[in-house]
Write a protein that binds this DNA or RNA. Sequence first.
DNA 1: TGATTGTTGACTTGTTCCGTTAACTTTCTG
DNA 2: CAGAAAGTTAACGGAACAAGTCAACAATCA
Lengths: 145, 145
Amino acid sequence: MQITRASEYAIRAVLFMARSPYRDVVLKKDICRTQDITPAFLTKIFQPMIKHGIIGSQRGVGGGFFLAKRPEEISLLDVIRAQEGEILLNTCLEEKGTCSRDMICPVHNTWRELRETMLESLSGKTFTDLLQTEQEIQKNLQQNA
Amino acid sequence: MQITRASEYAIRAVLFMARSPYRDVVLKKDICRTQDITPAFLTKIFQPMIKHGIIGSQRGVGGGFFLAKRPEEISLLDVIRAQEGEILLNTCLEEKGTCSRDMICPVHNTWRELRETMLESLSGKTFTDLLQTEQEIQKNLQQNA
DNA sequence: TGATTGTTGACTTGTTCCGTTAACTTTCTG
DNA sequence: CAGAAAGTTAACGGAACAAGTCAACAATCA
């Protein structure tokens, strides 16, 4: 019941890119250095993100990665889904018919509702929200210093 | 991001026992046969449940398992916690200090809130609730038949 | 005493997590 | 056009976890 390191790193990376001007190319090594991710692993993490249209890539000299969408259009759910696929909680939510107890299982609906809540919560948090939260945290830290 | 088979089976087993009168001993093989769980695996699943005081056991002839609490005192969260430990969503929620980014991470609070929501939802569902839901499902099925 | 039950710990098999490695392609610069 | 600087892809590998199994043991009852 935990997100993977890949999801955590992906969130960090997107948040880092969201701090640069929109569509600016950032260097992989800059992401890795600041966010504590190994280059090889970041490469792997970025591939599904590219396929999902969250980030873009530029090859060759001066190449790198950039956000393919504006931060307000990217949610935590988008990133997690790119890394881990659908959030399901229990196998019985996978496909109609997978659960032979489908029609009589009194827990089924609880899983479905809880899943809905999670999806709403995660899709409601965009990286613009996170940037704003970040600024508020830093303001509070300075005030208390 | 899924519950384990062990949790699923544990929930099934408790639900089954909750249908018998309180503290009645039920046979392992009856649980296994009706709930599609292998005896050896159920044995393993039941041990942490006993330690958590959710179910009790009786050795010897005529022995078996029984609910150590009333169904209304057992929640889905109790069973899941017995099987899987704490629900944490991200390692940064584990222990104070585990996350070096603790003070500046803008996502931290989202994890914490989402976790709270899940805990509330799961602790709010008792096995009395599930039994009632079950009866409603069966009533609806009969009406539509 | 012996059959019937639960207890415990070690074991197995398969999958997922968390990466690494190496060969390859694209792009820019001189 | 050569070569350096990037990203791409597929395969590999160790560790941990999931999902069970097994066998020796302890307790209980008839």
